[in-house]
Amino acid sequence: MVPVIELAKVRKTFGSVIALDGVSFDVYPGEVHCLLGDNGAGKSTLIKVLSGVHQPTQGTIRIDGQDVQFKSPRDAYKAGVATVFQDLAMLPLMSITRNFFLGREPTKGRGIFRRFDAKFADVVTRKEMVRIGIDIRDPGQAVGTLSGGERQGLAIARATYFGAKVLILDEPTSALGVHQASMVLKYIDQARKNGIGVVFITHNINHAYPIGDRFTLLNRGTSHGTFKKAEISREEILRVMAGGEDLDALMEQLPGVEA
């Protein structure tokens, strides 16, 4: 099987700062690939390269095995790479339907009578939300009435509906409570079942480990390797993320602490 998106030995520098150094990363269809790393590890830079915001200084990006160059997020989007950033690009005062179709509104009629096809949009929105596991009461209600987890679900459903092959989720659970976060994990699982390759960025191993198929650990701009779930334990991931021996030393000083 060919990875739906692949970064090969990508290097990205900002002036003299090396943000990414020879990082390779790939996602297969129907897989959740977790990208783990502490603050400043290069997670943000990596997803910005994946989503076309930044262009790699060296290295290549491949979509379905073909070399591509993303000049803008729009290029990436057209290639089927959808990124859900932390702000979600949601408008709380607008309805669920209007948010769902924002910028890609279905229309009917011609010329000056070309208008927003509200009925079709409502039907699709409700159907897509149910498909991901959210039973909305009224697609006309404001997005502000949804919980944080449901908004993530809406963003995922939206990206899926508009033909995403790769879904990049930037810290989708970080601002959420326990119950909301587990709902988001359920939505991610649903997207995976629909055959989408999911890149799940987080620094919370408790969210990543149950859902992830593979894990890539980033530290200071370099990759510490990609591991299948069977190959690595939760504790091992945490140890690498935190900087290895530093954490071990800390553990010895703080008796009674478990990772």
């Binding site: 997020p73 690009a89 949601m90 005062l93 209007r98 924002l102 070309r114 927003f116």
Partner: peptide, 20 residues
């Protein structure tokens, strides 16, 4: 109309609207 949706979105959150 689509324009109407865009007007609401532009005022709601300029960046979010642009990103979409």
């Amino acid at each position: 109309t689509r324009l109407g949706n865009w007007i609401f979105a532009t005022g709601g959150d300029l960046n979010a609207a642009r990103n979409m």
